[in-house]
Amino acid sequence: METVTIATPLGFAKISGNSEGLQSICIADEGEATAEIPTTLLDVVQQLREYFEGTRTEFQLKLNPSGTAFQQKVWGALLQIPYGKTLSYQQLTQQLGDPKAIRAVAAANGKNPLWIIIPCHRVIGTNGALTGYAGGLWRKKWLLTHEQGESQQRLF
């Protein structure tokens, strides 16, 4: 397993993977960017940079997250949520075929090991509220605003 840490607008992203695919991306407030990027992780680093620059709306990476069959099913559904769009936990649960499994779906969403790549930040509360995000709600808000193309108001 190879790792690299990169600076992003939201903190330091620690990326892990190998030739079998990307296994995890975690975000932290503190850290230090890695000087050298392993060859197997060059593509993910480039695609994340393009995402943050606003030039990439879809990732084309080989994914290899570790999880249960149910978690994999939920993460697969998350990958279907288009860039710039959101879905409620209830809608996601209905798509998965079991409207009563909302807590299990939310728990699987929270265990997502591939920050941004598997877009768990695109899942919101039924009332439109930003709920539950392992990276912090401020990051979730930033990501959704970034994807919706809303620019900050200028003072001048």
Rank of each mutant, 00 (worst) to 15 (best):
M1G: 04
E2V: 00
E2H: 07
T3Q: 14
V4A: 12
T5F: 05
I6C: 11
A7R: 08
A7Y: 11
G11H: 03
F12I: 11
F12N: 07
K14Q: 14
I15E: 11
S16K: 13
S16A: 14
Q23W: 09
Q23C: 12
C26M: 12
I27M: 15
D29C: 13
E30S: 12
E30C: 08
G31K: 04
G31N: 10
E32D: 08
A33S: 11
A33T: 11
T34M: 10
T34S: 15
T34N: 04
A35M: 07
I37A: 09
I37G: 11
I37V: 15
T39H: 12
T40I: 13
L41W: 14
L42T: 08
L42K: 15
V44I: 15
V44P: 13
Q46P: 10
Q47C: 14
L48W: 13
E50C: 15
Y51R: 06
Y51F: 15
R56I: 07
R56Q: 09
E58W: 03
F59L: 06
F59D: 02
K62V: 04
L63W: 06
N64I: 01
N64F: 05
P65L: 04
S66E: 02
T68I: 09
T68F: 00
A69W: 02
K73I: 08
V74P: 00
A77T: 05
A77M: 03
A77G: 02
L78H: 01
L78Q: 00
Q80W: 08
P82K: 04
T86D: 10
T86C: 05
L87V: 12
L87P: 02
S88P: 03
Y89E: 08
Y89T: 09
Q90T: 02
Q91Y: 09
T93C: 00
Q94R: 03
Q95A: 01
Q95I: 07
D98E: 14
I102N: 01
I102E: 09
I102K: 01
A104N: 03
A104C: 04
A107T: 08
A107Y: 04
A108C: 02
N109L: 01
N109S: 03
K111M: 04
P113N: 02
W115D: 01
I116K: 09
I117S: 08
I118H: 07
C120F: 00
V123E: 02
G125M: 12
T126E: 14
T126F: 11
N127K: 13
G128L: 08
G128R: 09
Y133Q: 13
G136N: 10
L137D: 14
W138R: 05
R139P: 10
K140D: 13
W142I: 10
L144G: 06
L144S: 04
H146V: 09
Q148H: 03
G149S: 09
G149H: 03
E150A: 09
S151V: 00
S151P: 06
Q152L: 14
Q152N: 12
Q152A: 15
